[in-house]
Design a protein around this nucleic acid. Structure first.
Lengths: 203, 203, 203, 203
DNA sequence: AATGAATGAGCATTCATTCAT
DNA sequence: AATGAATGAATGCTCATTCAT
């Protein structure tokens, strides 16, 4: 197992990761045998071990890859909002859109709890850190109330996860056009979030 | 496979379910072989199939069982609060306490996404329905703002899940005394929730 | 395991044998578990071992039982023919009728080759002996040619088996009315047999 | 499971089929575990599933393989006879010789009744069709009487089966030199057959 | 006489991984 | 770089049989 040394090798590795995302997402970690992944990728079974030390190694690589891509999508989304509140909503919209395209971001991550716990923690911690950073800046700028950025970050992430699972993943039938979270739901959700963050004092 | 017809049989079945909660939680669905479960339960391997049609059948039974118990714990907890806000906080505390005792409520459920998706949906839907009912009553009574009870229910559940995973499950080392969510975190979390629900108007 | 000592016990044993004929015939020796047989018989699983030492013991008992009954049916059939030729045809007709009612006489016997070879040999040898005896008497009486009764007996039995399998067993769908060998086929078959037996000289 | 793509693979598959004929014949379908077959073939247990989808799949392949070989042997045998009657006797001799070498042709086929009924029917139907064709030609040529070729074909096949079982299979002890049907028995049998087929008129 | 509970041996099948080419 | 062949450990499940009641 080693890094590809030629363009052909790099392409082969890329195809294996792409196949893995599909197969892990459709069938879960255990059902997704190395054979099925290599068949989907159109390479021989032995080829797998040129680029990955083990099935678990590939899984962890996929977790990290998904994490990188979902954060990228979210920050690009958020960049399109002109106000803080708009950026926030746009970030969530981008997350839901990514999840609709890549249900693996739910399915693989949830299974990762048992399969690759460290990789799974990294995933959530990175997203939370990113949220927390934005919240802290907003707090300092007085755009939101005096909330604890870390707790708020995890709370917001939990809301996104659960709403996404409920309104993106579950209506999603494999092969069907990916659904969007209904506008009314998204609006209600953002209203709750703004209420939570704007709170200046409380009981 | 059938229901036990004697007291001895009922006791045997109970021991298998208890063993399964431990083993599934520690090792995950795939690693938790039927042999390991029956050894933990102290019964023969074949005995398993007197009471469960398959390993999956037991898993689904466990999901439903955990769901029943966690809802029971939450409603008992909530009953101890005298005001609505106190009841809410007490419900979350009860949830976190249950999760500390039964980490399976996170681990098994997350894995259920791939293993027994229908059972897993039932779990979340039942909890959400319970939350939504309480929120609707509070809304009608004017105790909270004019929120959509269903969206709010899923949002609250997401917060509980994520905070629980971060502050109960992760610090939890198997065998070690079960941790509590730090008071400061719980307070911050409740403050966010109250802010979200009390919102009277919004952008 | 022992003989029943009461009328109730005798009835229980009878029900087990009757259930076994059905289940062995439908599912084969291996698929026919003791549990399935006792369920069909409407008795408890342990009850089986009051009357049979093992599953194999029951199977052998069933082979012998079927053998007794098929020979009984054939000799009763043959007794209805007034001439030798008529008796012969009537014997075959009775065999086919029995086989239609009791496909086990094919299915169980064929499987017995591997499961209980001694019992299976007894079955064929007894029928052959019976045929041979009749043929020898007919030969002495000059009713048939100078054939070797033993070879002829096995040949006739082979014809009956194969024609029965082809025209009784195969058209037979479980649950459907039992078929008869078409008259034209039976006539052709008897013509061949008479030709074979009447042969006085040959190349 | 797929066809071998290299010479090495083809050789491995061949060894598995050869081992299967022995083991199925000696021990029967159920006792012949995949492990026992692969041990006899000298390959790993998993290798089996490279070439066969299941134990049953191999069994059916073996039934078809035996059928092909026994028909080949019979037609080669028959080709050595110069007259029709001689060809017929030579065909039976070839069948008995094959059966002596390959008792599986009885044992496997008889068990196939329960295990793989469709494959077993194919076996008998192919042989019968072959017989019937020859008989029809002989009938048209006036070499035999006016018999129904299909009924006669099944009758002849039944004779061959039963005589073969009685005088080839049963005297056969595994490992011992393969027996031949005694000449006297074969002569008697052919005499019966000629009598049957030459019949010009009958009741 | 009858039975339901219990068991452990046995088996078909899957699969991650290694290796020779 | 690529691959198909090979493997053996692991596992879910079945089942004949025993036994306490």
């Amino acid at each position: 197992m080693s890094e590809p040394r030629t363009a052909r090798g790099a392409e082969t590795k890329r195809r294996i990761v792409a196949a893995a995302e599909e197969v892990f997402s459709e069938q879960g970690y255990q059902q997704a045998s190395v054979l099925r992944i290599t068949e989907r990728a159109g390479v021989g079974q032995g080829t797998f071990y040129l680029y990955f030390a083990s099935k678990l190694d590939l899984f962890e690589a996929l977790v990290d890859d998904l994490n990188r891509r979902v954060r990228q999508a979210m920050s690009e989304g958020a960049a399109r909002g002109s106000t803080r509140a708009e950026a926030e909503a746009a970030g969530f919209r981008a997350f839901f859109a990514f999840a609709a395209e890549h249900p693996a971001v739910f399915r693989v991550m949830r299974e990762a709890e048992q399969v690759a716990p460290a990789a799974m923690r990294r995933h959530y911690e990175r997203i939370a850190a990113s949220y927390a950073e934005g919240l802290e800046a907003a707090r300092v700028a007085g755009e939101i109330g005096d909330v604890d950025p870390e707790v708020a970050a995890w709370a917001l992430m939990g809301i996104g996860e659960m709403v996404g699972m409920r309104w993106v993943l579950w209506p999603h039938q494999d092969g069907e056009t990916a659904p969007q979270v209904p506008k009314a739901v998204l609006d209600q959700m953002m209203r709750l979030i703004h209420g939570a963050l704007d709170a200046k004092e409380d009981a």
